[in-house]
């Protein structure tokens, strides 16, 4: 058993499942947005606003945002533990990623809230 502190999940399996689940959510979100853009034809600011005003889209967007953030955290954490053997660099990078992930999440919530 290898102990880890800065990983997102509690176990390797935990991370692995989140990684796959979040990928499915991001795919669904991308497909849905693509469908919207294609089917709407003329995407005006008003149409865009109307789309995001629905509770469904707010929840879906938050879910997608959460997925991106978790996916990035797990993925970049793995990259850093593979390719950054220097402790100081690895720690700085991980701190940067974690703070960015949390900041993006808060920023996203704030944007969706304001619509």
């Amino acid at each position: 058993m290898v102990a880890t502190v800065t990983s997102l999940g509690r176990s390797g399996l935990h991370d692995w499942i989140i990684q796959r689940l979040s990928a499915v959510i991001m795919l669904a979100y991308t497909l849905y947005l693509t469908y919207f853009v294609i089917s709407t034809g003329d995407v005006t600011a008003a149409a865009w606003q109307a789309l995001f005003a629905t509770t469904f889209m707010k929840v879906f967007s938050l879910l997608a945002l959460g997925s991106i953030v978790m996916h990035a955290w797990i993925g970049l954490w793995i990259v850093s533990t593979d390719y950054m053997p220097k402790l100081a660099i690895r720690m700085a990078f991980q701190a940067f990623v974690i703070i960015m992930c949390l900041a993006l999440m808060i920023w996203g919530i704030q944007i969706l809230w304001s619509i």
Partner: peptide
């Protein structure tokens, strides 16, 4: 299995 369920042992 418990011994293997961390972020490295198997999942790397």
């Amino acid at each position: 299995l418990a011994d293997l369920d961390d972020a490295y042992s198997v999942f790397r």
